[in-house]
Structures are given as C-alpha cells and as structure tokens.
Design a protein around this nucleic acid. Sequence first.
DNA 1: GCGGGTTTCGTTATCGTTCACTTCGGTCTC
DNA 2: GAGACCGAAGTGAACGATAACGAAACCCGC
Lengths: 331, 331
Amino acid sequence: MKRPTLEAVAARAGVSRATVSRVVNGQSTVTPEIRETVLRAVSELGYVPNSAARSLVTQRTDSIALVISEPATRVFSDDRLFSTVIRTVSSELEAADKQIVLMLASAPRGHARVERYISGGHVDGVLLLSMHGADPLPGALTRMGVPVVSYGRPAVAVEMPYVDNDNVGGASAAVRHLLDSGRRRIATIAGPQDMIGGQDRLTGYREALRDSDRRSIVAVGDFTRASGISAMRQLLEDDPSLDAVFVANDVMAIGALQVLRQAGRRVPDDVAVVGFDDIEAVRYTDPPLTTVRHPIPEQATAMVRLLLTPPQDRASDRVILPSELVVRESA
Amino acid sequence: MKRPTLEAVAARAGVSRATVSRVVNGQSTVTPEIRETVLRAVSELGYVPNSAARSLVTQRTDSIALVISEPATRVFSDDRLFSTVIRTVSSELEAADKQIVLMLASAPRGHARVERYISGGHVDGVLLLSMHGADPLPGALTRMGVPVVSYGRPAVAVEMPYVDNDNVGGASAAVRHLLDSGRRRIATIAGPQDMIGGQDRLTGYREALRDSDRRSIVAVGDFTRASGISAMRQLLEDDPSLDAVFVANDVMAIGALQVLRQAGRRVPDDVAVVGFDDIEAVRYTDPPLTTVRHPIPEQATAMVRLLLTPPQDRASDRVILPSELVVRESA
DNA sequence: GCGGGTTTCGTTATCGTTCACTTCGGTCTC
DNA sequence: GAGACCGAAGTGAACGATAACGAAACCCGC
C-alpha cells in the first residue's frame, strides 16, 4: 500500500539503488539495456521519487515562493495585476518544472511568517511583489542570501534585482498626450508617495509639465476609489478651471469620473481624464477611459527569467519595460 | 555560514538532539529550566528546522495544493472569484500554519504534472477548483488517496467532499424576480452544459419557469463575453418580443447588454437583464446590472475547514451555501 | 530503605536519496 | 602480454530530523 522506494525498484530491476537513481535523474552513464529494465520496473511499481529525501540531500526544493507583500486590499484592488502575474509566473515556472508557493504577507505577522519560512530553506528562490518603500521584507530577504527578484523597483535602500515597467515614461506620455490635445490646466491625482509606483508616476507628470511651462496641480490619493473621489473634489475646489486630470491609477480615475459627472463637467469635453494600469473595468466606464497600459505578462516573465538565471550569467540585474498609452474616449 | 542543525543547538545547550527536538516541537515532557536553555541556544544560533529532513520522517509537508483545473481563460474571466478564493484560502491556511502550493492545471499536460506532483507526496491535501463535468482530475486525485475538497460540485461520477453555492436556488430567485416584476417572456443565456455551474443555473431557470406557465427560451453560451453577444443576437432573432433575459454569468451579461443597446432596446424598460456572479465590472455597466451574488469567501473558508477536518469528524461531506439576489437597475 | 511507577532525557535506528569511492571488466597502448 | 586507463555498476556514508526504546532519576507509600 505504501509508496515504493528506490530500493524496491532496484530489487525488481536487479540492479543497485545508485543505478536506478542515475536512470531516474537522467544521467547518461548507464547502458541503454539496463536503463530500459529500470524504467520498466519504475512504471510497474509506479515509483515516484520521494521529494523530502531528495531535497534533504540535494539542498534543492524545486519550488519558489511568490510573496505578495501588501495588505490584501491594495493588491487586489487591481485584480488584473494579481491574476496576470500569477498566471504568467505559473506557466513560466511550469516550463522549468518548478512549483509555486504562494504567500500573502500582510505585515507584520505575515512578514515574520514569510521570513521564517524562507529562511527554513523551503524554497530555492523568491519572487517578491512589494510596492512600499518602507517595506522591510526586501532587505530581510536579501540579507538571508536567498535569490530574490522584485516585481517593481524596490526601495532605494536595498540592492536587489528587479523588473519594472516604465512608470515615469508612461506617466509623461500620458501628460504629453493631454498637452498635445491642447489642454492648458493639467492636474494630477498622484498615488501614495510611500509607494514606488506612486512616486515614479508623479515624477513622470512633473517631467512632462516641466518641458512645457504649465503649472502643476497635485492632489494625493492612496490608489483607492474613495481617495480618487476626495482628491478630485479637492482639485475642483483648488482650481475650478482645470481642463485635464492625469490620475495615477485607474481605480482612482473611476472615482474621479464619478465626481466630474456629479459636478456637471463633461468628459472629455470639459475635462480630459487619463488613468494608469488599464484594468478591465475602465473599458466599461462612461466614457471609456484613456489610460496607460504596462505589459504585466512580460514583466512577470522577465522576473522569472531573471530569477532562474544565475547571477553571473545575467546581462543586467534590472529590467525596465516600456509602458504604452491606450487612447479611448476620456482624453 | 551554513544553517545550524539540531546537533549544533544540542551541543551549545549541552543536551541531546532529542531534547532539542522535543522543545522545538513543543512537547511538554521537558523541564522548564532545560527548555529555557535550549530556546536560548536556538535563538542565538538562529536555528530553523530543516523542512526536508522533518517531512522525510514525519510524512507530513504542512503544505496543501490549490489546484485550478481550468484553462486559464475561463478561470480568469471572473477575476474576483479567483483572487477572492486565493486570498481567503491563504488566510485560512495561514491560521493552520500551512503553506499553499498553487497549481494551474490546463489539460492535459498540466494534469499529468499535477498528478505526478500530488502522488509524489509533496502535499498533505488538495483544494480543487474544477468546474468541468468531464474533468478527469477529481477522479484521479481521489483514487490516489490524498484528502481532497472541491470548490463546487464535481461531476456526478466521483464521490468527493465539496462546498458549493446554491446555483439552482440563485437562478430561480433571479427568474422569480423577473416574474414578480411582471415580465412575460423570459429568456435565458445558459452557461456551457459541460460545466456543473452551467447546468445548475439552467435547472434553476427551468424550475422557476415551470412553476409559472411561461415558455422557456434558451440560448447557450460558454461564459465568455463573445458568446454572450452571439447568444443574445440569436435570442432576439428567435423571439423578438422577449422582455427579460436571465444570463448565467455576468461576463456574458455584459455582452448581452451591448447587443441590446445596439438593437435599440432599452434596459430595463424594454428588456430586463439579470446576471450571475456579481463581478466587479457590473457595477459600472450601463445600467448597473442586477445579478446573483454567491458568497465566495464563505465558500472558500468552508472548503479549507472541510479539508482540515479529519473525515470521521466531519458533520457532512458537502456544504451548500445560499446565493443572494442583488437588485440594481437592469431589472 | 526498598520496590514499583513516573518523569525526563539520551541512544539509536530509520526515512529515501544522492554522492564520493570502490570495484570490476574490458580495451588500449607500448 | 602486462600495466595503465576508462566506463559502468555497486557500496557505504552522509543529509537532518523524529520516534521508539532504554536508562537514569525521582517520587511515593509501606
């Protein structure tokens, strides 16, 4: 009833354990004839290697952790990011015959759990989704010597391989689009400034405006719809004559659209709106939202590739992927 | 530089390996004084048990697999389902101090991979998301003797613990709502009939109609938006006088709304529409969609609880959770 | 103060692999 | 034709933990 062991297979095939091990692990130093016999014994007994025993001696686990170091609400506010990353990472690791251990680490209890688990040697590497500058996890993970790659640029303090999209470039492309279409007073609803993405998108906005001679009008949100609503209200109050808003993510942009409508401003006639992320929902807003799309699958793929490449073989420890402006009806 | 072992801790604390093991595993048969000494040695050396060695002898892995046995496109068409299940399962398993291994198994290569992995004893149990009646995975998994719980009722053929929402009840509640609001010709866009959810929701529609004396008008889709579009077109052609549609999921309903608008039918004035799932996007459709919400977090939680409860301690092997009609503007 | 019964701790075997070595034929070379 | 050499298979020792078993040490009552 219990699972057959290497020993059993060896006995059945009339060879030693070592030979069976060689066959199972695909070493070439075994006579084709014997290899056949062994393979037959393996399939007859339904042998599958015991992973615990194997990784006890090899020090490998063939599994990598995908750590989401965010409070659940933030990560999942944009479902597409999350599911796309998981899906892409999954299929990419599948090709490398590695498993995914998923860890949602909401601080601080989750952090301790993650650190304990990772330092326990359960995984060969870590893919880290962390968007907070103040997150202690990137630092902690690098310190324990396990290979890590971050999705998105981690806080400046830590040296860590990462793959990011061009937040700065995407944001300034959005703003330039507004400038090109003749908008004069372009405000922004920025993201939280403790998040790298929030910082970079604001930087992009500022850079684009600096090249023109427009004044910057900034309100800060925290990437939630509610914050988009209150930020938009504040902007309208601060500068009633604004004719465009660049919003640092789509979720807040949806809130902004709602406020604009309530305030009797037509979009895009009176006020143009551009979002960021290109989440599913913005195709169905009224009007459909012009936004910046970043290539999530490519980013996730690059992340896995980077992790699986030994440090000395890497062309670079950082990869930046281009963002793309998707023009719909709101701007 | 390498990680300290039990041996090292034992040496430092001046006791035997066994005692350290007892302390680490929280056995009570150890003198408080010695326990203190050991714990100090543990923290001084930063000892963390080697999981491979442990599970080699205990036969446990403290991790469970979450297997998504669907082509990616289907699972992710409703992002909320996916992310909510993951999030809930994750936090629920966290409480039990178990890890979650995520496997996306698109047939058939994925199936072989999953079977190999599960039979390899990598996990203590399996949470299975499989919505196809013809899926061979539920059968295969039960056969290999590993504890499994299914999200949603599996195909009739296999005997397997599961947690499902009341698809039949939810669908008939939706149809009754249409009847109660005076609709006379109520059509349905059914889901794929090789999926349990698709079957059950159609059953609910039929049951509700049977209690009245209305005729059933059925088109079948496959839960994608495109199929919702073509199904709606077909329905309008078959019966131009229809005044209500119950759509088996929201994604198809979005397609249906689009077709109705193009056909010049006002919703809900000319045609009432009810969806199913209550995905995020239907709050922003025009008009916002009336739909049936099923309690995904509760379902996921119940699934984990069921898996962690030893079979002999279970009150029942199947749990059915109620669905709830969410009335918005489309019906 | 002594025997029986508990605690408490140490010894040792074991789990299933892999890896470094050894061994064993057989070929090659001079 | 003998020794060096090489490839293929076997032997034995880790790997790091747990658990069964044994041996002290201790308690108790008589």
